[in-house]
Amino acid sequence: MRLTLRIWRQRGPEDRGAMATYELDGIAPEMSFLEMLDTLNEELADRGEEPVAFDHDCREGICGACGVVIDGQAHGPEPTTTCQLHMRHFSDGDTIDVEPWRAAAFPVVKDLVVDRSAFDRIIGAGGYVTAPTGSAPEAHSTPVPKDAADTAFEHAECIGCGACVAACPNGSAMLFTSAKVNHLNSLPQGAPERETRVLDMVDQMDTEGFGGCTLAGECATACPKDIPLPSIAAMNREYLRAVRKG
């Protein structure tokens, strides 16, 4: 199929950047969105032009490296990651707009690549458990209730792709942070840092310049891993509990 692509091009962090238009032919419906960009880049390279920079790693929907805004939607029209989005969801003759995640806390590095290390610093502020490393612990030494395990697992699915921030009108990282907080705070292994974790991670989230939650719900809609919107309320609850406990 034949497509018109309008892609954000920006040479570097200081460059102003602009949308550039490309015509692309011979796209097969079974290609992934990233393969489509690969095809474009091969053509650009052949013509001696600079290829479009975009992030990717696993291309299996599990690493969270990929992620662009396609026609105004983070990861495009399907509830999945950009690497798992297939061109069959577009039609011949479509014009597709491709932009980087937009948030003050995710500065553009180049073209469609943004710096998401703000997420790493939120994790560094409390997204861990204190446990002796080395030999693996006896699996049954810490019993985990079924519902706690389920809650933890649901939130552990977050791959940190940043689609929630990209989709939120306030550039808020509440869904990401809540996924991490709820994942560890619902487990007995996370109990020793239950209060400091939520307080420190929320502080770091604010420090990084993410906005707040106004319950627009865009984050949960964009999330490729179905982290539910009420996770944010659950984190608010943890936060207020931690403040009360001092």
């Binding site: 026609d71 939607q73 948030a103 865009e218």
Partner: peptide, 24 residues
Amino acid sequence: RDLAARPVKYAHRKARTSYATRTM
């Protein structure tokens, strides 16, 4: 804070959140 967190708008705007939400 919210406005500063999203300084650049998307070129492609899609349908936004509910009227009540965005008129708060």
